[in-house]
Amino acid sequence: SKDPLVVASDEAAEARKALANNARGQVVVLEGLSHWFQEGAVTGGEEEVARLGPNAGSPRLVSLVGDWLQKILAAK
């Protein structure tokens, strides 16, 4: 929700429409994460990147992706 490059309020609905026929597709807006999936973003701008930790470092993101992969792989 703090991504200045891909604005969730503008893009999420269209992404959901695009994935409507994909049973494995899912659009999730993670509140407070930057474009680089970092926790604690205020503006989501580049000036915050260095102080917010590693890219894709959000435990919520890691858990969400891990759960999704487990579900998809178990279905095979």
Rank of each mutant, 00 (worst) to 15 (best):
V29T: 13
L5C: 05
G32K: 02
P4E: 00
Q70L: 12
F37Q: 10
G40C: 02
V7E: 06
G53E: 08
A18D: 06
L5P: 03
A75Q: 15
L5S: 10
G25H: 09
V27K: 02
A12Q: 12
V27T: 12
L5Q: 13
Q26Y: 01
A23P: 12
V7K: 14
S58R: 03
E46Y: 12
V65C: 10
K2A: 11
V49A: 11
A50K: 15
A74T: 15
V28P: 01
A74C: 09
A56I: 10
K76I: 02
A15N: 04
N55T: 13
V7G: 05
R16C: 02
K2N: 12
A8Y: 04
L73C: 12
A50P: 09
A50S: 14
A56Q: 13
L19T: 04
E11H: 13
A41H: 08
A15D: 03
A13T: 11
S9Y: 08
N22Q: 08
V27L: 08
A12C: 03
A12V: 05
W68V: 04
L30M: 15
E48P: 05
G57W: 02
V6C: 13
S1D: 10
N21E: 07
E39P: 00
E11W: 14
W36N: 10
V62C: 00
T43R: 07
Q26V: 01
V65H: 13
A15F: 15
L69A: 09
R60Y: 04
D67I: 10
K71I: 00
Q38Y: 01
A18M: 03
T43Q: 03
G66V: 07
L61S: 10
V29W: 01
G44H: 01
E47I: 01
R16Y: 09
R24E: 04
A20F: 05
A18T: 04
V27W: 10
V62H: 06
L64F: 12
L73A: 11
Q70V: 14
N55A: 14
S63C: 02
N55P: 09
E46Q: 08
L52G: 05
E31N: 11
V49E: 05
I72N: 14
G44F: 02
F37W: 09
N21I: 00
G57A: 04
R51Q: 06
R24W: 10
A74L: 09
T43V: 03
V6T: 12
A15W: 07
V27P: 15
P59M: 05
N55E: 11
E31M: 01
G57N: 07
P54R: 08
R24D: 12
Q38V: 00
N55H: 12
S1G: 13
